[in-house]
């Protein structure tokens, strides 16, 4: 049987579980969150561990800030086996210490670095692709749809950049919202707050129209290159981009018509 250890979905509970496994010298077959669908050969184990927040300090002390940031990034990814990658990465740290980063021949190292870079890349994309709308009460509101959970990293960026504005960023794929009050941001569940996102400031229409004009005009038609655009700005992100509204509409009409057409046949 394969021993699958279950943690309580949060990062802190994962760290507490890993600490406990290390302490008792247990090699798990895999580590999964509570949504895991058990299969035939699995032996599901839920340890009764207290979720202690002090563990963050403890881990930073043992593994240093750099490694801690790495595994936090991996945890925020959408990779299937991220927990066990984190487990082996940390386990190997005891052996290799600060040389661990060079040991890219170990799968847990190459995977950790690859995934962390992937998160960094998607976060960097959204530093550009986040689009705020100004609401009537002057709050800037944006919706994003990243594949990975980058809201925390992204909020750090906007905290520095738009430090004197009130802003909210909602990750619509995860239903979480980062709220910034000119001092710090906090990430809460989307269920706990209602935002009147259609109540826009008086300038909003005019400004976003000018932006859409600008976007259309800067494309040089003699150089048109759809593949290149798609490569750097994949279609999945278009629905949060103000300047792509028209294209999105075209797209959805096209989809609807072809669907209806097919149904007609």
């Amino acid at each position: 049987m394969n021993n699958i250890y279950i943690y309580n979905d949060s990062f802190i509970s994962l760290l507490n579980l890993i600490k406990c496994l290390f302490k008792n010298k247990i090699r798990p077959y895999n580590i999964k969150n509570t949504f895991y669908n058990k299969n035939m050969f699995d032996n599901i184990i839920k340890l009764n561990i207290e979720s202690d927040e002090e563990i963050i300090k403890e881990f930073i002390n043992i593994f240093n800030t750099y490694n801690f940031k790495l595994i936090y990034n991996v945890f925020n990814s959408n990779e299937e086996n991220k927990e066990i990658i984190i487990y082996y990465y940390l386990l190997n740290y005891f052996k290799y210490k600060d040389k661990l980063g060079m040991m890219r021949n170990l799968k847990c190292v190459s995977e950790t670095l690859r995934i962390s870079e992937k998160i960094g890349r998607e976060c960097h994309k959204f530093k550009g692709f986040t689009r705020f709308k100004e609401l009537k009460n002057k709050v800037l509101y944006a919706e994003i749809n990243p594949d990975n959970n980058i809201l925390y990293l992204l909020s750090i960026h906007f905290k520095k950049r738009l430090s004197n504005e009130y802003w909210c960023i909602k990750d619509i794929n995860r239903n979480i919202i980062s709220i910034y009050n000119k001092e710090d941001f906090e990430i809460i569940s989307g269920n706990n707050i209602e935002i009147f996102k259609n109540n826009l400031s008086s300038d909003e229409q005019n400004i976003s129209d000018m932006w859409k004009d600008f976007y259309k005009i800067v494309g040089i038609k003699e150089r048109k290159n759809e593949r290149c655009r798609m490569n750097f700005m994949p279609k999945k992100y278009w629905k949060v981009l103000t300047e792509m509204e028209e294209e999105n509409e075209k797209d959805s009409i096209w989809k609807r018509v072809t669907r209806e057409n097919r149904r007609g046949n």
Binding site: G128, F129, K216, G219, I220, C228, R229, F232, M233
Partner: peptide, 15 residues
């Protein structure tokens, strides 16, 4: 590092 905010129809970065 600079940030690209969008890409125009010719595939060039808009920053």
């Amino acid at each position: 590092a600079g940030i690209c905010h969008s890409f125009s129809s010719d595939g060039r970065c808009i920053s």
